[in-house]
Computed example of a mutant assay.
Amino acid sequence: MIATAFLATALQSASLPIAQDPRLAECLAQARRDPTTAIANGGSWLGETSGSGSAAPQTCLGIAYTSLLRWQAASDAFLAARDATPETDRAGRARLGAMAGNALLAVPDPLEALPTLRMARDDARAAGETELAGETAVDLARAFVALEQVEDAEAALADARADAPQFALGWLLSATLARRTGDLASAQGFIETAIGLAPEDLEAGLEAGVIAALDGREDAARASFESVVALAPDSKQADRARAYLAQLAE
């Protein structure tokens, strides 16, 4: 799931200012359909550049490595692109840093991801990109959870909810973490917000059912699981929902 989420994030790199470069736009398109060739072409292009000019080919290389699930190489390329981006472009540096951090989470190397993601969050805040800062805080929380640093994860998710209140994933992960720590009241509040923001999110539907079941509200749990099956009957989430429904029926 991490890899899929990161790939979706990485492919949004066309929104970066440097992606207005026609050569980069062409390279990014090639990175999606033929990543091996894009790596060869991106490497040649990189050899022609220096300084800030290397940001574009490094970005292309990062996307190509992402398409091949070569996460460490992707992180290295995104970090190089970030470092080559002018310091005045804090938003661009933030996006590239966040992509590098996500790649490290997919390696997985959460310990190495922490400083990269903190750097990206700080760049986003400095650029006034509060939504991006909040989304990056969610990634920080994922790293802390992987390292079993629960209090740090909770603090990161609190930042995420404050900075990016419309980002449903922040509320969903807050609900999951609260449920795991036994705080079902908070978990219920968080999951209600998550579902309000993304009513067709299958993971949120599953989480709502699990929280309700643990809280002894079997009818509510059953309704949540049945909604997941109804929304996407052939999905992996639906299979899990059916398994939970079977447990409730025992």
Rank of each mutant, 00 (worst) to 15 (best):
A120C: 02
A73S: 11
L68D: 06
S227L: 07
A204E: 01
G62L: 01
P110A: 08
F167D: 12
A213G: 13
L184G: 09
A126E: 10
D159Y: 05
F144P: 02
C27W: 09
A168E: 15
G170E: 12
A38N: 07
L105K: 07
R93G: 03
L114N: 00
S174I: 04
D215A: 15
L206T: 01
G170S: 13
P57R: 08
P165D: 10
Q12V: 06
G53N: 04
P17F: 11
A19D: 12
A98M: 12
I195E: 13
G170M: 12
S75Q: 04
A168T: 10
T116D: 00
R217G: 06
G51F: 14
T49R: 15
A238G: 08
A160H: 09
G134K: 02
S227C: 00
A106D: 04
V150E: 09
L248T: 03
A64V: 04
R125D: 10
L111K: 09
P199V: 04
P86T: 02
G196I: 02
A238Q: 03
A84V: 04
E26R: 14
T193D: 09
E48W: 04
W45T: 07
A84M: 05
A25Q: 12
E87D: 13
E48L: 14
A243V: 09
R70V: 08
A38L: 08
G53Y: 02
R70P: 00
T193I: 14
D123G: 07
P57N: 09
I2C: 05
L231V: 02
A162E: 14
L28R: 04
R23Y: 00
P199C: 03
R142W: 12
A241D: 06
T9H: 07
M99Q: 12
L245S: 05
G209S: 05
A127D: 09
S52T: 15
S52A: 15
L114Y: 00
E207K: 01
A162M: 11
A246E: 11
P199L: 03
R93D: 01
G62I: 01
A55V: 01
F78H: 04
N102V: 00
L46I: 00
F190S: 01
T130E: 14
A127E: 09
A160E: 09
M99G: 02
S44H: 08
A243P: 03
G47P: 03
V228C: 06
G170H: 12
A3L: 12
L117W: 01
A221Q: 02
T59M: 14
S13M: 08
E129L: 08
T37H: 08
E154F: 11
V145Y: 07
A106G: 04
T176Q: 13
A221C: 01
C60Q: 07
A220T: 10
V145G: 03
D201H: 11
T49A: 14
A8H: 05
G128N: 07
T49Y: 05
T116G: 00
D159Q: 12
P86M: 05
V107T: 13
E48K: 14
F167N: 11
A241N: 12
V210H: 10
P35L: 06
D183A: 10
L172D: 07
D219A: 15
S67E: 15
V145F: 04
E200A: 11
C27R: 13
T9V: 07
P165H: 08
P86H: 07
A137I: 05
G182T: 06
P110T: 09
E48N: 10
L11S: 10
G196A: 06
L184M: 13
S44D: 13
